[in-house]
Computed example of a mutant assay.
Amino acid sequence: MIRRRSTPWIHKWSRPLIAAIAGLGALTTGYLTIEKLTGGSAACVAQAGVKGCNDVLSSPWATVFGQPLALFGFLAYTSMLIFALAPLALKSAENNSRKQIENWTWWLLLIGAIAMSIFSGYLMYLLASQIKAVCLYCIASALFSVSFLVLTILGRTWEDVGQIFFTAIIVGMITLIGTLAVFSNANQLSSTPESTSGKPVQISFTPKVPPNPAFGWEITTTSSEAEIALANHLVKIGAKEYVAYWCPHCHEQKLIFGKEAYKIINDSVKVECAPDGLKGQPDLCKAAKIEGFPTWIINGKSYSGVQNLEELAKVSNYTGARNFKYFK
C-alpha cells in the first residue's frame, strides 16, 4: 500500500500568511500616505533627542516623483495581496487554468518579494546612515518584505532552484539600480546659490557633517527686505516655530529665510525642543504636543513641516513685500 505524502503545513498556509502580512502592510502604508497627503503627523513613539517617524516622513527620501513613498508601498502590498489570494479565489476554475494561475502568481510573488526586500534593505541603510532616525513603520515594512521572501521560497516546491537564484540576481540588480536612480537627487547635497535672474531659488539640504548643538548647521543664504519684514511680522503676531537643532528640515526652513531674517526668528519666535540644544525647552514642546519638526503655531493653528514663505505670509495675514528669494 502506497501512502500519499502529506502536504507540509508551510505549503498549505504560505499564501494565507503572505496575504495577511500584505494586508497589514497595505493598512500601514495607506495610513502613512493619508497622513503625508493631508499634512498630518503619524502616530509614533518618540524619544527625546531621537528622530522618529515624522522626521522620516518629512525627509527628502519620503517623496518620489512628487508623491509620498508610502503610496508606492501601498500599491506594492496591495499587489502582493492580490497575487497571494488569486488562486484561492478561483477554486471553481478549471484545474489546468487554476494551476497555471497558481504558477504565474508564485513567480510574481517571488519577483515582488525580492524587489521589496532589496528596496527595504536600502531604506534601512538610509535610515541608519543618512536620516539617523528610529521609525517602527519602516522597520516593520522591512520585516514584512523579508517575510514575503522566506514564505515565497519555502511556501511551495520549486522544480528548478537554480532559476530562483537567477531571478534573484536579475531582479535584485534592476531594483538596486532603479532605487539609486530614484533617490539620486535626495542623496546629493544641494547647494543654495544666490539667484541671478530675479527668480526664487529652490532650497534643499542633506547634511554631510554632524550638527552643532548650539546652532545646528551654518546658514549660508542671505535675506532680502521681504524675508526680514515677514520675520518681524511673525514676531509681532506671536508666532512660534518649534525645532530641533539636529533636524535637517529645520535647517531648510532657516535657509529659506536667510541669515539676517532667521536671526529675528531665532531670537523671538524659535523654540528649541532638543534637550541638549542651546536653550532647549522640551517641556514647552511637550505641552504644545509637538510631534515633528519644524512645526509652526500661527494664530492658534499648527503647520507641520517646512513652509514656503508665501504660505507663512498667507496664514499669518502678512501684507508686505513678497518677492521672497527662496522656496522649498
Score class of each variant (00 low, 15 high):
Met1Thr: 13
Thr7Ile: 15
Lys12Leu: 15
Trp13Ile: 15
Ser14Asp: 12
Pro16Gln: 05
Ile18Asp: 08
Ala19Gln: 10
Ala20Gly: 14
Ile21Val: 14
Ala22Leu: 05
Leu24Gly: 14
Leu24Lys: 01
Leu24Arg: 02
Ala26Val: 06
Leu27Gln: 01
Leu27Met: 11
Thr28Ile: 12
Thr28Gly: 00
Thr29Val: 00
Thr29Arg: 02
Glu35Asn: 01
Lys36Leu: 05
Gly40Met: 02
Ser41Asn: 12
Ala42Phe: 04
Ala42Ile: 07
Ala43Cys: 00
Ala43Trp: 00
Val45Phe: 09
Val50His: 03
Val50Trp: 00
Gly52Met: 05
Cys53His: 04
Ser58Arg: 05
Trp61Phe: 13
Thr63Pro: 01
Thr63Ser: 10
Phe65Thr: 01
Ala70Arg: 04
Gly73Ser: 03
Leu75Pro: 04
Ala76Gly: 13
Leu81Tyr: 10
Leu85Phe: 04
Leu85Ile: 08
Pro87Gln: 03
Leu88Ser: 09
Ala89Ser: 09
Leu90Ser: 10
Leu90Ala: 09
Leu90Cys: 08
Lys91Glu: 14
Glu94Ile: 05
Asn96Thr: 14
Lys99Ile: 12
Gln100Ala: 15
Glu102Met: 10
Glu102Phe: 11
Thr105His: 06
Thr105Asp: 07
Ile111Val: 12
Gly112Trp: 11
Ile114Pro: 01
Ala115Cys: 06
Met116Leu: 09
Ser120Cys: 09
Leu123Trp: 06
Met124Ser: 01
Tyr125Phe: 11
Leu126Lys: 01
Leu126His: 00
Ser129Ile: 07
Gln130Pro: 00
Lys132Phe: 00
Ala133Trp: 01
Val134Asn: 07
Cys135Pro: 07
Tyr137Val: 10
Tyr137Ile: 02
Ala140Phe: 09
Ser147Pro: 05
Ser147Gly: 06
Leu151Glu: 02
Thr152Lys: 00
Gly162Thr: 12
Phe165Val: 14
Phe166Gly: 01
Thr167Trp: 02
Gly172Arg: 03
Thr175Tyr: 03
Ala181Arg: 10
Val182Gly: 03
Gln188Gly: 04
Ser190Phe: 10
Ser191Met: 09
Thr192Lys: 07
Ser197Asn: 15
Lys199Arg: 13
Ile203Leu: 08
Ile203His: 09
Thr206His: 13
Lys208Pro: 02
Lys208Val: 15
Val209Ile: 12
Phe215Gly: 04
Trp217Cys: 12
Trp217Arg: 13
Trp217Glu: 12
Ile219Gln: 10
Thr220Val: 15
Thr220Pro: 02
Thr221Val: 02
Ser223Met: 08
Ser223Ile: 03
Ala226Leu: 13
Glu227Trp: 06
Leu230Arg: 06
Leu230Val: 14
Val235His: 05
Glu241Asn: 15
Val243Glu: 04
Val243Leu: 12
Trp246Asn: 15
Cys250Trp: 04
Lys254Ile: 00
Gly258His: 04
Lys263Glu: 13
Val269Pro: 07
Ala274Gln: 03
Pro275His: 06
Lys279Met: 06
Asp283Leu: 00
Asp283Tyr: 00
Leu284Arg: 09
Trp296Phe: 13
Ile297Ser: 10
Ile297Asp: 14
Ile298Asn: 03
Asn299Pro: 03
Gly300Pro: 13
Gly300Met: 07
Ser304Glu: 10
Val306Lys: 04
Gln307Trp: 01
Leu309Ala: 11
Leu309Lys: 08
Glu310Met: 13
Glu310Ile: 09
Glu311Ser: 13
Val315Ala: 14
Gly320Ile: 14
Phe324Pro: 15
Lys325Thr: 09
Phe327His: 14
